[in-house]
Design a binder for these strands. Structure first.
Lengths: 159, 159
DNA sequence: TTATTATTGATTTTCAGTATCAAATTTTTT
DNA sequence: AAAAAATTTGATACTGAAAATCAATAATAA
């Protein structure tokens, strides 16, 4: 109970600051925090995990019938530029977006059977990536890593 | 000199075996090693680095005017399935393919300024990836890793 | 030969994402 | 407040990569 409450409270705090961050970003770029952008942000942020622009468009319409999908696409780009959303590409032809909580970055572990995806991070790998780039004279600014395989459930079924 | 010769000879040997591998793959799947497929393979294999289907189509046409691009797309898929080509995705909307020499897999280090890409491998990272997947109950079958940054030349210019 | 199966190139279709544009809204200037 | 300037919006048209379709061929098997 205690923990749950804490998490919820924590999420709200992050929520506040992310909305604030979006607002700040728009202000800095002399752009407007319109009602559509607010709605799209709220819906996007309430989803956990990743969403495709189409999915988000559908969800957003439930709140406000009049929002067009061009605006959803545009807003996702803004959120991405503002560092609030992150593009993820499972190479199935659709670019998805996921909320980017603070600086907590992660990579993806994907089951090729059922499509399940797990978020993972390994600081040791991160470290080695930096090192590797450095060896080639590169200054690393980011990376994407996708691990493909078969999850335990699906492995079980096959056997 | 000695080294160069050796490399060239080495490449020829690989070439032979890759063509052979393609042939074997087709045979196994009861597919035919047609003249078009042979031409597309040869052109693809002669390119070093990655090519987009469109680029390969253009190059292939220089050898044989009549080849259609649908066939190029199809053949690249076959090469990929046969383990002879590998898809690479620089997330610019075009899927590129590169020859897959033996089992020597590698990842990409990409300069976001000039677009240059360097092939890299780090066995220590590979090891950790396996380990990480294992911890989550996954059996790893492959991965893709792209490191984005700024190369030394471009860093120099900016300063 | 005849029947079956695979392949091809041209063409059409699909679908995600972008560009366009007039209308609406907001902000700034006068 | 009024007028002018700038942004945003939604509808729609467009783009370009990749896949599907299909009739015509070619190769293989019976």
């Amino acid at each position: 109970m205690k923990i749950k409450k804490f998490i919820i409270k924590g999420k709200e705090i992050i929520m506040q600051s992310a909305r604030e961050q979006f607002f700040q970003y728009l202000a800095r770029k002399k752009l407007r925090f319109t009602s559509q952008r607010a709605i799209i942000f709220d819906v996007f942020w309430s989803v956990d995990g990743h969403v495709s622009p189409e999915e988000l468009y559908r969800l957003t319409k439930e709140k406000d019938r009049s929002i067009g999908q061009a605006t959803v696409y545009r807003t996702l780009k803004l959120l991405s530029d503002a560092g609030i959303a992150r593009e993820v590409d499972f190479s199935d032809g659709v670019t998805r977006y996921e909320p980017y909580y603070g600086q907590k970055h992660h990579d993806h572990l994907i089951c090729q059977e059922c499509g399940k995806s797990v978020e993972v991070v390994d600081p040791r790998i991160e470290k080695l990536q930096e090192e590797l780039a450095w060896q080639h004279g590169f200054t690393l600014s980011g990376h994407s890593m996708y691990l493909y395989g078969c999850c335990s459930q699906c492995s079980g079924k096959q056997a």
